[in-house]
Amino acid sequence: MSNVGPYTYATLTMRPDNAPHLAVSFYTPKLRVSSGMLLSNPRPFLEFTSHEANVHISTTGAGPVTDADLAIAREIFTAAARYLADCERLHTDQSAADMTANDPAA
């Protein structure tokens, strides 16, 4: 398996008679994740930032928080918890494999 160095990949696809499609992939240790509240028009936001790209998520139409906004926030929370659990499990597995590989008695 080859390892590619860290990068951020963003593509914008625009086709006639279709809505534009933007895809952003972060594969970098320099990713910053933050959240907060915009004060000028009170609403929450979630932000993913690298040197190459920024992704901002906020409420529908930048307006009041709706039931749909709550559902999306819960989906983000659930996905982030699953991502964390998978990262922790793989990190533990990889650390154990590294220790076994470096153990001369193994």
Rank of each mutant, 00 (worst) to 15 (best):
D86M: 13
T59S: 11
E47C: 09
H51C: 03
Y27I: 04
S95C: 03
E52T: 02
V55S: 00
N3M: 11
H21K: 15
Y7P: 00
L38Q: 11
I57V: 15
K30Y: 06
D93F: 05
R82A: 08
S25W: 04
R32K: 14
D86Y: 13
P16V: 09
M1G: 15
L38H: 14
A53M: 05
E75W: 09
Y9E: 09
R32Y: 06
T100Q: 12
G36F: 14
V4K: 10
I57M: 12
D67W: 04
Y7C: 08
T59F: 09
Y7S: 07
N3Y: 12
V4E: 13
G5P: 00
D98W: 13
C87N: 02
A80E: 02
H51T: 08
N3V: 11
S35T: 14
A19G: 01
L84W: 05
T28P: 01
E47R: 15
T100V: 12
A101T: 02
A81I: 02
A19H: 09
Y83K: 06
A101E: 11
P6L: 00
E47P: 00
A106S: 10
D93S: 04
L90D: 10
A85L: 09
M37E: 12
L84Y: 07
T49V: 03
A106T: 06
P20V: 01
I57R: 06
S34M: 11
T28C: 00
A10S: 14
C87Q: 03
T8I: 01
L38A: 05
E52S: 06
R15L: 14
N3Q: 13
A106L: 01
E47Q: 15
P44L: 05
Q94I: 08
A68C: 01
A10T: 15
T66D: 00
Q94F: 07
T8G: 00
D93R: 10
A68M: 02
Y83T: 09
A10H: 11
Q94M: 09
E52P: 02
A106G: 04
T100K: 14
Y83E: 03
P16C: 05
H21E: 15
A85N: 13
A71E: 08
D86R: 15
A105E: 08
T78I: 07
Y7V: 04
R89K: 09
A71S: 07
R32S: 08
T13D: 12
D86C: 10
H51V: 06
A97Y: 06
E75F: 04
A105F: 11
E52F: 06
A10W: 03
D67N: 10
V4L: 07
Y27M: 06
